[in-house]
Amino acid sequence: MSKDKSDVGQIHWRDLTVGNAEEIKDFYTSVVGWEASKHDMGTYHDFDIKTPAGDTVTGICHARGDNASLPPQWLMYVKVESVKESADNCIEHGGQILDGPRYMGEMFFCVIKDPAGAVLAIFE
């Protein structure tokens, strides 16, 4: 794990995982003006979402495979020092673990729900 703690606590990514990613991608490209490009997932494609200037700002993903249990909402990913420690603290303070801790590619992450019902992904 990196010793650089300067970005701990910062939002690094956000995405949306839904059953109908193709339709929802079309919704946001029409409503917000984003552009979408296919992101190869092997047997299907998720979508990299870009601004009109070409900056990738988010993703819209299919709720398939390991991601089938992710909630259908905009999910922010916040960097923490230790996913395991943060997940344990989540439970200790009345929250729930919705997914993980697990690896997605090289990222170790977990999806938590706070006592008010809000959902957040944490990663290291």
Rank of each mutant, 00 (worst) to 15 (best):
W34S: 04
P72T: 05
E23S: 10
V18Q: 12
C90L: 10
F47P: 00
T51A: 07
R64C: 02
R64M: 08
K50V: 06
D66R: 09
V57G: 01
P71K: 04
K84L: 08
V83P: 12
S86E: 14
T43S: 15
M76I: 07
V80W: 15
K79Y: 05
E35S: 02
P52H: 11
H45G: 00
E92F: 15
G65C: 14
G65Y: 11
T43F: 14
F27Y: 10
Y77A: 08
H93N: 15
G19S: 11
N67M: 10
D88A: 15
A68D: 11
G94S: 09
N67C: 10
G54A: 05
E85G: 03
T17K: 11
T17H: 11
V57T: 01
F27V: 09
N89D: 15
K38C: 01
S82P: 15
G33Y: 07
G42A: 11
P52L: 11
K38I: 03
D46E: 14
E85A: 12
D55G: 03
V78N: 08
Y44P: 00
F47D: 02
W34N: 02
S86C: 12
V78K: 04
E81P: 10
T58Q: 04
E85P: 02
A36D: 03
P71T: 07
G33W: 06
C61V: 01
K25Y: 01
Y28H: 05
C61T: 03
D46T: 00
H62C: 01
D40R: 07
N89F: 15
K84W: 01
V18I: 14
S37K: 12
D40P: 13
E81L: 13
G54C: 05
Y77E: 12
F47M: 06
A36G: 09
Y28S: 07
E85V: 08
A53S: 15
T56P: 02
G42Y: 12
A53Y: 12
Q73D: 05
D40M: 05
P72E: 12
F47A: 01
S37M: 06
L70V: 04
P52W: 11
I91M: 09
C90E: 08
K38Y: 08
G65Q: 14
N20C: 02
P71F: 05
V18H: 10
Q73P: 00
T51E: 04
I49L: 13
P52Q: 13
S37P: 01
V78A: 03
E35V: 09
L70Y: 13
G94N: 12
K79Q: 09
Y77N: 06
I49G: 02
E35N: 10
